[in-house]
Design a protein around this nucleic acid. Structure first.
Lengths: 229, 229
DNA sequence: GGTCGCCTGTGAAACTTTGCACAAAGATTA
DNA sequence: TAATCTTTGTGCAAAGTTTCACAGGCGACC
């Protein structure tokens, strides 16, 4: 029986993105069918886990055969809403914001950077990767035209909340926050934090706390969670 | 009774970094004592959760009083090994690598970028943020001098594994991987993935799946997990 | 058509993490 | 000193997630 609601666990969603990446590669390789056991071999995720993850969204496989790569790829893309373009704006034209704006990986993704914003008058008006840096306070007005649904926050920590509020005002419905600060958003807005310093601090904890160098490239360390090749 | 081993759950470690950030701010504000209930009000983490998290590492508070901010700050810093400097190298002098190398937030952290590496001969030798870009293949030799324990991976996905191997060769013991690819490391190496596209894909899933705009700035959306202030 | 081997989807068990509730302990007041 | 208030640390229950194990479906081969 298939469920269809949005009640899949978060860890499942994270793994789904890995399955997708693997499926895209399989598709490129011209492989048409794959079983959960074969996926386990490629991803290091238990086959039962894979089947359970998929079962949250429907029944995609054939017993005795496995999954049709193309079909599963399309279905999971639908589930993740990756079958349509998503427009995003970046707030904060500093080092990180500039780097993200120029990220080549977006080309093959459904995500498009359609606007770049800052509050620094010496930056506003300048061109960056073919985008003119605009005044962050104009975002609500300008986004009526841009129609971005995703906001990427690359401002300093002390400005994060203020800019997040502006984004919500502007009709942004999902925020990816790179500032090392927590932002409060209304419950109809999705928000995630990506925090360089936090990641380093967690790695710091593990330094000198790992099994000891008995070699054997058995990757079972406290990895966050991996991705496809 | 206090435990001291490294058997704390990962979610606890992630929250610990949030407690630390809050404690640093409290310390700056000159606040000397804080209770788990007050922390709950500031962080949105249940007080019982906070106490349980802390209990993995010892007993730091006084019943009837709370925690001494400075003392807890120092103890947690020890636990996370943030009381000493950590040297890190960056591999991949592209947009993202360059941005991270220049990240101002490192100044107040125990992390120091001590080397910048790439495989592109047109980049090797150039200066970036006062660091000379060096040949990635020289890392094992050069790191005998640098003594970096942390490696930050900002190379394209298809080079990630190869460069990770070089890092392990070079004595790096923790890897922060920004490439959209999974890397395999020996079990005595810590590794974490930070993946822009994955985060966007997860946000994409939540778009149009949230409670609907009934306003009320009640932040109880599917936030990843927040940070202080 | 029957038999065999493989693979899916899923209920139930095992494990992990969170949240609750309370005993014990320090502070405060009288 | 006793009564009261506050807050910690933790055993236990609840919730969430992963893993196991198997019934039943499908294809291949004889």
């Amino acid at each position: 029986m298939s469920q269809e609601q949005g009640n899949a666990p978060e860890p499942t969603l994270a793994r789904l993105t890995r399955y997708l990446r693997c499926l895209r590669r399989l598709s490129d390789e011209g492989i048409q069918t794959i079983s959960s056991k074969q996926l386990e071999a490629r991803l290091g995720v238990l086959s039962a886990q894979i089947r359970k993850d998929l079962s949250y969204f429907g029944e995609f496989g054939k017993p005795g055969v496995g999954y049709n790569v193309q079909h599963l790829l399309e279905r999971l893309s639908e589930v993740m809403q990756l079958d349509r373009e998503h427009r995003a704006v970046i707030a904060g034209a500093g080092n990180l914001g500039s780097a993200l704006a120029g990220y080549a990986g977006f080309a093959k993704s459904p995500f498009r950077i359609v606007g770049m914003f800052d509050n620094n008058f010496s930056k506003i008006g300048r061109l960056l990767w073919n985008l003119e840096i605009q005044d962050i306070h104009e975002l609500p007005r300008i986004n009526q035209t841009l129609g971005a649904t995703i906001g990427i926050l690359t401002v300093p920590a002390n400005a994060a909340q203020e800019v997040a509020d502006i984004m919500v005002d502007a009709g942004i419905r999902a925020i990816l926050n790179f500032a090392p600060a927590h932002i409060h958003v209304p419950c109809h807005i999705a928000a995630r934090d990506v925090d360089l310093l936090r990641e380093l601090e967690i790695l710091s904890y593990y330094l000198d706390r790992l099994p000891a160098e008995d070699e054997a490239k058995s990757d079972t360390a406290p990895e966050a969670d991996g991705l496809d090749s």
